[in-house]
Write a protein that binds this DNA or RNA. Sequence first.
DNA 1: TGGCTCCTCGCGTGTAGGTT
DNA 2: AACCTACACGCGAGGAGCCA
Length: 243
Amino acid sequence: MKISADELESLFDALPDVVFFVKDTAGRYTHANLTLVRRLGLKQRSDIIGKSVTELFPAAMGGSYAAQDRRVVTGEVIENQLEVHIFANRAPGWCLTCKRPLVSRGKIRGVIGISRDLGLPDGKHPVYDRLKRVLAYMQENYAEAIRVQALAEQAGLSIAQLERHFRRVFQLTPQQVLTKLRIEAAMRLLRTDQTVASISMACGFIDQSAFARQFKATVGMPPRVYRAVSGLTAKMDALPSEG
DNA sequence: TGGCTCCTCGCGTGTAGGTT
DNA sequence: AACCTACACGCGAGGAGCCA
């Protein structure tokens, strides 16, 4: 039994916190769930089908998504990539994106993927309180060099335990949580007039080079472009998410 | 579920060179 | 001058597997 993309599309329509899409090898949408339609500020699916990310997304983000798709079309699989998506109300939202080549009869026919919103932590988990302490430490010290080993010691857990519990409670590895904290801080500081170099140091990156790379990988655009984009208001009232 | 080892690979880093 | 990108290299993070 094989499930078609049409059937998956219908199923994913029911998930408001998950974007589902299929694109052909040229990067044109062949399927999109209603969550993506809404986040693009569009009315119906047909407004998306046949279009590419560069037509639907602002150039700064569309180009990054297209580059990601090109990698997948060559066979690369993207698993749980932590990304910032800017929703229609311009608020940033954290998502985990998965993309894989769509293979049919032995040939790659396109890209199939989902992007799910990062949910709330599981506060009922037995070690949640210990992890919360580690998280608080990370929030206070993200500007410093933090080793997972040190976090594990602080929680009284082995590294393997810490990672396992982090994934279960926060849906992220400790390293991803640290990146998230740093990028969030950077996005705040980019709205001030601090230089990119000073922001990179203030957020715990070794230099602005490492910062720019990480920022682009996560947000989809270089820091300078994000600064320009976040300074605009009316011109960019719809910066939706996908991946 | 916890603890441990092993191994792969992705990320951080430093540098150089190009671009704005 | 400030910023971005590409590349090479080393190391630590994280996955897999096993056992208790």
